[in-house]
Design a protein around this nucleic acid. Structure first.
Lengths: 220, 220
DNA sequence: GTTGAAGCTGAGCGGGCGCTTAGTGGACGG
DNA sequence: CCGTCCACTAAGCGCCCGCTCAGCTTCAAC
């Protein structure tokens, strides 16, 4: 799982962004976009948060949109990696689905700032960038659907509509980025556990499986 | 657009907006906000869609924000009314929850244009308007939680965390406005039925209740 | 010590924004 | 047939946007 670098609730997919000034601008843009939305954010605001003059932005990025594009791609790649890691684990479909949902939700809750931009500012991208990101989304969808399909094939799950259920599971996880509040009553871990349980119910996972004691959902 | 009918999901709420020109402007604003987002929409665009000059907007509304405020309040009141109607029905908690989720989702899918603005442009409101809308949201939340609590109390549902489950159920329904596509494979009715089934699973509704034959979920 | 590249700034351009204002035209009471 | 009203328009104001560019500093290479 993620190490103790969760400073400020955001995992850091930005560690690999170089040079240093470009990364500071990217992080500033993530914060600004998450707070106010892409269109309401000014390049002056982004540069200011990064402690630079407005013109400095254009040394590292061609346009404001390129910032969003880069954030979106890195974020989607990270999300996809999280789901792939869970999907490739050993174990029954129920365990893998619970793991996938749990870690996906923890990422959306803990890195809400990033996730919000990644999941909700897609429409602000131009057609080309948008198409590229949508391709990544289709891979995300495929990853979750594969687990559900395997569960159904193995007789572990009871699902009427695999496509629709996949959509609903992903929708549930993604929307965490909209409502989750760091100062609210839940920790990212609690939401992850709760959602893993809810999703297992949605797919009709047989409660009397080989591994009965699943990751405990918090009583409340 | 407004092709006469438009499933009835979208058209209705604005019928009571009184001066005809004010209603046309409001409908134009809903469409523009849904397509591009509040901040990316210009007053010139709204007025143009309504077939008027930019200045005409300010005869009926003080600011661009007042348009969003009015749209948001009317939309939230409509959503609340839908849930209250379902919640006050006779029948067991499972039937009422299925009805509430079904109609709520049908509204979000059929009136996606409106719902998108209502559910996702909240942050663009100023503090006062925002607070007013948040009060309506709390009532929406209370309505769903009440049904779930009754189901738990009656032994119909098996829920570990009522608060969290309520949050998840609402989140699931609301997010329909984000992904639903009129040209996609599902009709609003199908999504409503699918989601009603999924939510009953989430709350652990006993399948062998007194009214076994629930509204049929679409096979696919 | 000079040079050139790289990173950054201060000033500012063209343009589109939300919103205002003076004036128009059509409906209507007298 | 006039006068009043008022929804609406044409024109435009002041502002701030995304973005540019000449010039400054720094620093490694020679």
């Amino acid at each position: 799982m993620s190490t103790a670098e969760e400073t400020g609730g955001d995992a850091q997919p930005w560690g690999e962004v170089t040079p240093d000034a470009a990364r500071r601008l990217l992080v500033a843009a993530v914060e600004a976009f998450a707070e106010r939305g892409y269109h309401a954010t000014t390049t002056r605001d982004i540069a200011g948060r990064a402690g630079m003059s407005p013109a400095a932005l254009y040394i590292h990025y061609k346009t404001k949109e390129e910032l969003l594009h880069r954030i979106s791609r890195i974020g989607h790649e990270k999300a996809l990696e999280i789901l792939r890691t869970a999907g490739r684990r050993e174990g029954c479909a129920a365990d893998r689905l619970a793991d996938a949902v749990g870690s996906f939700v923890r990422w959306h809750a803990g890195g809400r700032t990033t996730a919000r931009v990644v999941q909700y500012e897609l429409d602000s991208l131009g057609p080309d960038a948008r198409a590229e990101i949508l391709a990544l989304r289709r891979q995300v969808d495929a990853e979750v659907r594969a687990i559900i399909e395997e569960g159904v094939a193995a007789g572990e799950f009871e699902v009427l509509d695999v496509h629709g259920t996949t959509l609903a599971v992903l929708s549930l996880c993604i929307d965490v980025a909209r409502w989750f509040n760091v100062d609210g009553p839940y920790t990212p871990e609690e939401v992850g556990a709760l959602y893993a349980d809810l999703v297992l119910r949605m797919v009709g996972a047989k409660p009397a499986g080989p591994a009965q004691e699943r990751s405990g959902a918090a009583h409340r």
